[in-house]
Design a protein around this nucleic acid. Structure first.
Lengths: 327, 327
DNA sequence: CTGACCCCTGTAATCGATACCACGTGACCG
DNA sequence: CGGTCACGTGGTATCGATTACAGGGGTCAG
């Protein structure tokens, strides 16, 4: 590999001068500048980012720890984060925790070891122990989608309270009284909040907890559908559990909404294509990713970004048996 | 930050000894070993990966350049790559090229600058110019899903020839003679190959090229559906274009398969849930990701892994109007 | 009792960049 | 015409680790 030394030699200057030219520092003569740049060009020199980062203590890299990369919700967030970061000259390392707290902790540590300039985390569980480590190293941190108790850092998330209230209303209007909820894990903030907020709607609920993944949606749907007096509608609190539930209902030959109504938290492009189209609570996914990246960059810049709450909204489509909803 | 120097001081040994203990080198006394480890523990020391990598010229990191992260096909590949890499102690930096050759080149350069130990790329286009850069730096490279002309590195991909032949047969059996193809870009190997292989099926084809993304699927479907003598079936050569096509058909009120048949290359979990369920060519996505990671690790280890071709297979489900297909 | 050898440890060079400090030269001013 | 100042440049320490080499102390054999 060609190093800055080679370039310096080739251009007949010192390494310091090469560095200055490449970083636009001070003001080298126009003549030395072109000579250095010519040498860089000729040798195909590219600075070693590791060495540079070691010296400057900055990597222009953000770490993003995602709960589950195959969940399209998180994939879209990852994409948005990456786009926003790139627009600001930052690179993103995406780590996939697979909804495991252990793996998440491991990744956080790895990313800290690599000296990322900031960390964006969608916490897998409520366990806040890993946060101490991040704070001990003074690395800017922003929580995304989920929060953890006692987190002293900015949080970016969707507020589904209104949408879930609207959903409860819509279900009641459509004649449902007793609703099965396929809830998220009780040890995640989104798992709890969505359930609580929906519970305020005053419907009689039968709650089964899943883990935000497809199989758990199937299992929960099976459990609810097998109940002696089956709920007349199901609400899955995440798109993957919604998918699992749909698969299970299909296996059982239960028709939506004739046999059982269904609504899902978090919209996906294929929900409108089903027959009937699925009623959902749509989250501003892309905006969440962007906002989180912006908050983190602000934090890195020394500012104090406020928490961000973006509203989710109900999209009625027919899978709950609405007389004929709006939107 | 606490450095190796602090640990050495705290334990009353030299930095060399600390390093030896931490890397299992040579054989420090059991006593010094425990003393060093105690100091590490007490200070919460973690080695600086940048400094370590600078010295050892190894980062235990793989770079993965994906064409489009929101395409679930690639998201799943990314996940598989990451899992396999992690199992071998490697970390993965995922970069999203968004189907743009420019962005891909930029990312390849960035990853090389960060001295990844190996590079996994799903090429956005046929343009092979970036490969020279990788070779100049002697970084192991494996191509994934798509290949580029004259690439002198291992390639891992799915072979859909048989599945596409089967699909052509199935379509003919179902009475289709003239089929609209929503093909991938002509400047990608998968775009060309899938089209060629399907063309061998002997059906009369009307081809419109998309870009492997949702909107292009809609546009192409609109174009084909608007034709004076409309093809009796459509084949979308990628799941996102398939989604776009479905949306467009829905908008136009065209029923599948009564008005027009449909098949899609690359299965997704929600395809079976549609009415009718969509006939697809299923790719061994996870295996592709794993195999690619394994090939790259082998290359890094100095071996010469062979190209890998995994077979895709046809899954008949009914959206082509089959009398009643299998599977 | 002494020499050879081995094992453990410390000293210092090194990876490739950046940044502080000092120096030489030319311009400008008194 | 001499002194000051500013500007461009080079030398060198440094970031935090690894590692080659050297040295000190103990063991064992002659």
């Amino acid at each position: 590999m060609t190093t800055i030394k080679d370039v310096a030699q080739h251009a007949g200057v010192s390494t310091a001068t090469v560095s200055r030219v490449l970083n636009g520092h001070a003001a080298p003569t126009e003549e030395t500048r072109t000579r250095v740049l010519a040498a860089v060009e000729e040798l195909g020199y590219r600075p070693n980012a590791l060495a540079r980062s070691l010296r400057t203590t900055s990597t222009t890299t953000l770490g993003l720890v995602i709960s589950d990369l195959v969940n399209p919700f998180f994939a879209e967030i990852a994409r948005a984060v990456e786009e926003e970061a790139r627009a600001h000259g930052y690179c993103v390392i995406v780590a996939n925790a697979d909804e495991s707290a252990d793996q998440q902790a491991t990744y956080v540590r790895t990313l800290l070891d690599r000296r990322v300039d900031g960390l964006l985390v969608c916490p897998a569980t409520d366990d806040p122990s890993w946060i101490a480590e991040v704070e001990a190293r003074d690395v800017p941190l922003v929580l995304l989608d989920r929060t953890v108790p006692g987190a002293g850092c900015p949080v970016v998330r969707a507020d589904g309270a209104q949408a879930l209230a609207d959903l409860a209303d819509a279900l009641r209007t459509a004649g449902h009284r007793r609703v099965g909820v396929i809830a998220g894990p009780a040890d995640t903030s989104t798992g709890r909040e969505r359930l609580e907020q929906f519970a305020r709607g005053g419907l009689e609920l039968v709650v089964v907890h899943g883990d935000f993944r497809r199989e758990s949606g199937s299992r929960a749907a099976a459990e609810l559908a097998g109940l002696p007096d089956r709920p007349t509608a199901l609400v899955a609190m995440d798109n993957l559990m919604g998918l699992g539930a749909l698969e299970e209902l299909r296996r059982r030959g239960l028709k939506v909404p004739a046999d059982v109504g269904l609504a899902v938290y978090d919209d996906q492009p294929w929900f409108p294509l089903l027959d009937p189209p699925i009623t959902v609570v749509a989250q501003p996914t892309v905006e969440m990713g962007r906002a989180a990246a912006r908050s983190l960059l602000a934090l890195i810049a020394g500012e104090q970004p406020a928490d961000v709450q973006l509203s989710a909204r109900l999209v009625l489509r027919g899978s709950c048996g609405e007389a004929t909803g709006a939107a």
